[in-house]
Design a protein around this nucleic acid. Structure first.
Length: 659
DNA sequence: GTAGGGTTAG
């Protein structure tokens, strides 16, 4: 057992150079670089030979007593031993007792720095079980587990903390929030932040800086950032250059170039010198509105300040030129990038290709794409995606499909955008098998579809006349929170209606109606026709009532007649009133249908009486056939009442006639 | 040795 541990430990020192044991010859620069690790050791007086000894023979409480090692050195020895061990649990069982919280934190950070997540987690568990944790342990643990992409585990741990002062400690909170932000859980981080504040957290500049970083790549990130900045200012916390940098990037990514500029100026006014990041973020903001004049000026300012434009700055400048439509200038800059050795990956080519493609210059896009192949530029798939999209846009569908196949054969690498691009190429060329294969692939790789995926598929299924399938897709799309737009909905409503799927058509109509998207007015009339044809009269009533003013007369009339004939009898009067209120004059023919229907169902006599009274109030006259029909059946309704109403009706019609 | 950041492509 002991031999195995020793052997393992030794092997470990051979394969991974331990930062804690300095090698004999270390250059001053090297020493500076490793300073972080060496600090652990700065306070100890142990020399290297003692360390090696300590490492080779596992210390135990008995050896501590029996040898001449001081308790302090024993702690050091135990630290090194645990840090270098292969099997953590037995090592902790043997030596953990000697170690203090700060020693364990050193080991925790050591494992974390080496990306040994399993060890980090195992050690932290042991520390918790043995009550050897402090704020530092928590914040380091959270930091590392956040890096190993395990936010769920981190949250569970955080929720399990009983000690309120620990739970609301600003360091612990900041590292939790950072973990969420880094893993793309911005919404959750904001929710948790509010919860933490209620629990007693007093946020500091780091807290705000952490949350601001999350605003960059989310929708409405800019307005959220403004709220956070307001809070920061209300708390009288200072803005530093980190916060300014983040803010400029947020403005750039949400198209707020004026605001980006103003934060940049404010930062300079407060005495901070902008660095490469500040410059490139502002430059990026200028790309949004294609402001190449300001961009050139900024790059010149930067040079005057003694900074040399780097690869990112020049690539961003290229983006500005492309967005400004200055393709000649872009080509020149790309040549410069090539000369400087800054065009060894595909990004600058992609920027130019994308701009050219969107401007419809497909031949130039092609020539850059093939030139890249000749130059052997590294590609991660972006250039393929741009090229395939450009081909689809120019309706060169066969070429797009061929290139999609080539990409799959060569790279077999997928993310959401690539999957959508390939799907589009296959859908537009009607490659059903490839479409299905792509969908299975997305499923396997857990790539969840977005708005574009659904859009492409629904259009495709419609084209293939697979309307039910298209409907299931749009349902799924809606459930996942993506709002289909009007074009797609009306297209599908039309086809569903034509194939008699009126209830499905109605549900698509409702998706659009209850979304915040605009709605084509004529759609109300279309859906009404579909519902009437499909016999969904109750639904038709809702549509007719809410949108009567934009529904064509003939549709409204057709609905009214159909409803009076076969809709719910209890609602017949309501329908007539609603149609009348919308300004449509009701024909006598319609009333006579209603009256015959009531006569057939004497138990609804109250409704007939109400109708007759209402008609009178609105100046509608009962025609002679209906009148005779009512008189013939007056015993069912109460002779006196009927006679009274009819005589009033008669008088009214006489008045009307003389008029 | 407890926590934070920002730049370019589909």
């Amino acid at each position: 057992m002991e031999i195995a541990v020793l052997g393992g430990g030794f092997q470990h020192t051979l394969t991974v150079p331990s930062p804690i044991v300095a090698s004999p010859a270390v250059s001053p620069i090297e020493k500076k670089k490793r300073n972080g690790f060496l600090l652990t050791f700065a306070s100890t007086t142990l020399n290297e030979s003692q360390l090696e000894t300590a490492h080779v023979s596992p210390p135990s409480t008995t050896t501590v007593r029996k040898t001449s090692l001081t308790p302090y050195s024993a702690r050091r020895a135990a630290l090194v031993y645990v840090q270098k061990c292969v099997d953590l649990d037995p090592a902790l069982a043997r030596s953990g007792g000697v170690l203090q919280v700060q020693d364990l934190n050193v080991i925790l950070r050591h494992f974390g720095t080496l990306n040994r997540w399993k060890d980090v987690s195992q050690l932290f568990d042991w520390m918790q079980k043995n009550g050897k944790v402090n704020i530092g342990s928590y914040s380091s643990y959270i930091k590392f587990m956040g890096r190993s992409l395990n936010p769920v585990k981190v949250l569970e741990m955080y929720n399990g903390i009983r000690d309120e002062s620990m739970k609301n400690n600003v360091f612990v909170c900041n590292s939790i929030l950072s973990c969420l932000v880094r893993n793309g859980k911005f919404e959750s981080s904001i929710k948790l932040f509010d919860q933490m504040k209620r629990g007693g957290l007093i946020p500091d500049a780091v807290t705000y800086s952490t949350l601001l970083a999350g605003c960059i790549k989310v929708k409405h990130g800019y307005s959220k950032a403004l709220q956070l900045i307001q809070e920061l200012e209300d708390s009288a916390l200072p803005m530093d250059n980190v916060i300014y940098g983040t803010l400029i990037a947020i403005c750039a990514s949400s198209g707020q170039s004026k605001e980006a500029e103003s934060y940049f100026e404010r930062m300079k006014m407060e005495g901070y010198s902008p660095n490469d990041f500040h410059y490139s973020s502002l430059l990026n903001a200028y790309s949004v509105d294609g402001n190449h004049l300001k961009a050139d000026e900024l790059v010149n300012d930067m040079k005057s300040a003694g900074l040399v434009p780097n690869k990112v700055i020049l690539t961003t400048l290229l983006k500005v030129y492309v967005r400004s439509g200055l393709f000649e200038k872009s080509r020149e800059l790309l040549s410069q990038l090539e000369a400087l050795g800054y065009a060894n990956d595909e990004m600058p080519y992609c920027l130019l290709m994308d701009g050219l493609g969107k401007a419809g210059h497909i031949d130039e896009v092609k020539s850059i794409f093939y030139a890249m192949k000749v130059k052997d530029v590294k590609s991660g798939g972006y250039s393929y995606s741009i090229m395939i999209s450009a081909l689809c846009r120019s309706k060169l569908l066969e070429e797009a499909k061929q290139l999609a196949r080539e990409y799959e054969a060569r790279y077999d690498k997928y993310d959401l955008v690539m999957s959508n691009t390939l799907l589009r190429a296959y859908c537009r060329t009607g490659e059903m098998e490839s479409v299905m294969r792509m969908l299975r692939k997305m499923d396997e790789l857990a790539i969840s579809p977005d708005w574009n995926t659904f859009y492409v598929l629904i259009k495709y299924f419609c084209k293939e006349k697979l309307y039910r399938l298209a409907y299931r897709m749009i349902e799924d799309m809606h459930k996942k929170g993506h709002q289909p737009d009007e074009e797609l909905c009306s297209y599908l409503i039309f086809h569903l209606g034509k194939t008699g799927a009126s209830s499905e058509a109605f549900s698509v109509y409702n998706m659009l109606r209850y979304s915040k998207r605009t709605m084509w007015k004529a759609l109300h009339g279309k859906i009404l026709n579909i519902l009437v044809a499909g016999g969904l009269l109750k639904e038709a009533y809702v549509v007719a009532k809410d949108n009567a003013e934009v529904i064509p007369r003939y549709s409204l009339k057709k609905f009214t007649v159909t409803f009076i004939k076969s809709g719910n009898i209890n609602m017949v009067n309501d329908v007539l009133k609603a149609v009348h209120t919308s300004g449509l004059k009701i024909d006598q023919e319609v009333f006579s249908i209603a009256i015959s229907r009531y006569i057939e169902q004497p138990e609804k006599k109250e409704l007939l009486l109400k109708l007759l009274q209402w008609m009178m109030g609105q100046g509608y006259v009962v025609d002679s056939t209906s009148r005779n029909l009512i008189l013939k059946n007056s015993h069912l309704f109460g002779r006196y009442l009927i006679a009274e109403i009819l005589s009033k009706q008669h008088q009214m019609s006489k008045v009307l006639r003389t008029q």
